[in-house]
Design a protein around this nucleic acid. Structure first.
Length: 164
DNA sequence: GCCAACGTTGGC
DNA sequence: GCCAACGTTGGC
């Protein structure tokens, strides 16, 4: 019997390009960075429990002139405790997070490639196949979101990437 | 800058 | 456990 095939899943991470952009990721050592500072329980649960090495990641630029999915990345390391929470000098410090029982988690993300054509929020909204996309739901603020396989392929295609 | 939506906090 | 007040997110 063949070994169970690990299912690759897909995610979307929001970032404000003024703070950390997709280009910043591509310029980072090994194109990799710790996705730290997430302080929302729902997002924390995804980082800690769900995201696995090798999963696909869209990088989305928020709070900018043209909010858009701008690039593709991959989970380079599954969830581990966010050390900023223990660092009193960090802006992400949380005195309630105990190193023995960490409250906040992060993953590592490695940049893969920019979308030849970034897919704007407006374009996502006018694409019928993406109607159910998490990002487009009213009032949604989650900075870490699951993306379905169909959404993944559709957005990649809109962005000008071949294959999946 | 405005404001809707949502999460968190804290008094009771 | 309820819920008002407050803070944050993020599009416009």
């Amino acid at each position: 019997m063949p070994a169970a095939k690990k299912t690759r899943r897909f995610w979307l991470l929001k970032t404000e390009p003024g703070t950390f952009s997709f280009d910043d990721l591509m310029r980072a050592p090994k194109k990799t960075t710790g996705w730290d500072g997430v302080r929302n329980y729902q997002a924390r649960n995804l980082l800690r429990d769900e995201m696995q090495e090798g999963d696909g990641v869209f990088i989305y630029h928020s709070s900018t002139d043209v909010p858009a999915v701008v690039g593709v990345a991959v989970v380079a390391r599954a969830g581990y405790p966010d050390p900023n929470a223990f660092d009193r000098k960090s802006p992400y410090h949380d005195p309630k997070s105990d190193p023995d029982k960490p409250k906040w988690f992060q993953i590592d993300v490695r940049g893969v490639e920019a979308l030849p054509r970034p897919v704007s929020l407006a374009q996502l909204r006018e694409t019928p196949a993406l109607e159910g996309m998490n990002l487009l739901r009213k009032g949604n603020r989650l900075s870490v979101q699951p993306v379905t396989g169909a959404e993944w392929r559709k957005v990649r295609a809109l962005g000008g990437l071949k294959g999946d």
